[in-house]
Simulated assay, not measured.
Amino acid sequence: MLLILLGVLVMHLIILILLIVSTAASTWSVGGDGTTDLWYTCRNSNGGYHCKPAISEDWLQAVQALMILSLLFCFFSLIAFLFQLFKLVKGGRFFFTAIFQILASVFVMCAAIIYTVMSPDDGSVKFGYAYVLAWVSFPLTLISGLIYIVLRKKE
């Protein structure tokens, strides 16, 4: 039982790291002369690398908010798991933790879908690794939430 709990905890920490990197990294899309993320647009020009704040459109602000919410809910889920691990009665399930983790999964999925649909469709622009990490963290977060539903506290 201890190995299962340790495995779930390690998986949760990996998911949290993936969400932090995908939210903060500077490569949601890569163009011919620079990168774009949720916060800045950086370009190679005049022999230097210049960054300016990202466009202030509603869809990008929605993606920013959803990614931050997914981070917060994943973190709160980790805190709830650790709290329930020590305070939950024997045989109890981790429903509170599961709800937070599934909500984090839904938020990251919605953010990635909005970015996919609304990002500029230019032939030279490709999605970057932070975008891919967001999509990778979605099923992992959902699976983790489902594991918390099934998981029972033994001793």
Rank of each mutant, 00 (worst) to 15 (best):
M1S: 14
L2V: 15
I4W: 13
L5Q: 11
L5E: 10
L6H: 06
G7E: 00
G7N: 03
L9N: 07
V10Y: 00
V10L: 11
V10T: 11
M11G: 08
H12P: 06
L13W: 08
L13I: 12
I14S: 06
I14D: 04
I17W: 05
L18C: 05
L19M: 11
V21L: 11
V21E: 07
S22R: 04
S22D: 02
A25C: 08
S26R: 15
S26D: 15
T27M: 03
T27H: 01
V30R: 07
G31W: 01
G32C: 08
G32L: 07
D33R: 14
T36N: 01
L38H: 01
W39Q: 12
W39T: 13
Y40P: 10
C42W: 00
N44G: 09
N44P: 12
N44R: 14
S45Q: 14
N46C: 14
G47D: 04
Y49E: 03
Y49N: 08
H50I: 14
C51Q: 01
K52Y: 01
E57H: 02
D58C: 08
D58S: 15
W59N: 05
L60D: 01
Q64G: 04
Q64F: 02
I68W: 07
I68R: 12
I68Y: 06
S70P: 07
L71P: 05
L71S: 11
F73V: 04
C74A: 11
C74M: 11
F75S: 09
F75E: 06
F75C: 07
F76G: 09
S77K: 00
L78S: 09
I79H: 02
A80N: 10
A80R: 09
F81I: 07
L82R: 07
F83P: 05
F86R: 12
K87W: 04
V89S: 15
G91L: 03
G92L: 03
G92F: 06
R93C: 10
F95C: 12
F95Q: 12
F96P: 10
T97N: 05
T97D: 02
I99S: 09
I99C: 06
F100P: 10
Q101V: 09
Q101R: 10
L103D: 02
L103I: 15
A104Q: 02
S105P: 08
S105G: 14
V106A: 15
F107G: 05
V108E: 00
M109S: 11
A112R: 07
I113L: 12
Y115K: 03
V117I: 09
V117F: 02
S119W: 00
P120W: 02
P120E: 08
F127T: 05
F127R: 08
Y129T: 11
W135G: 02
V136T: 12
V136M: 13
F138A: 15
P139R: 05
L142V: 11
L142A: 10
I143T: 12
I143E: 06
I143N: 08
S144T: 10
L146C: 13
I147F: 12
Y148L: 11
Y148F: 15
Y148W: 14
I149L: 13
I149R: 10
V150Y: 15
L151K: 12
R152C: 10
K153H: 07
K153P: 13
K154M: 15
K154C: 11
